[in-house]
Amino acid sequence: MAPIRVLMAKPGLDGHDRGAKVVSRALRDAGMEVIYTGLRQSPDQIVQAAIQEDVDFVGLSCLSGAHNSLFPKVVELLKERGAGEIAVFGGGVIPEADIPGLRAAGIEAVFTPGTSLEEIVSFIRERVKKDHA
């Protein structure tokens, strides 16, 4: 089976990329192929990169509080461009109360501070299994 491909992205203007980089390395250590976009990406740029890189997952990281406007936009644009099969997950400084809204908008998992790397890796593996089942 081909390795799982993940695009890790920083939507918006937030410069906190410790989490995105640590998660990127953990996914790579777990055998996945990871592409990191770098800072200051618009939803449009992220979706373009996801399609171009032919990824299975997009991981969004935002600690600035802009997640409610930026995360759903990525999902919308993916669907619009016929790439709705790419699964989107997110993380950052995100209040518990925002999570149901993000889930409803198609963000499949939201990882808040304190999440273990293990949890994120197994979310991805489980999701892949479900797809192939």
């Binding site: 918006g12 203007l13 937030d14 410069g15 200051r40 618009s42 600035s64 509080g65 802009a66 930026l70």
Partner: peptide, 22 residues
């Protein structure tokens, strides 16, 4: 906020969702 820190006005497209946040 981040747009101010990056020298963008509040009506710049990249400022969307970020105005007054941090």
């Amino acid at each position: 906020d981040l747009p101010t820190q990056i020298g963008l006005d509040s009506d710049h497209p990249l400022s969307e969702g970020e105005v007054g946040k941090v």
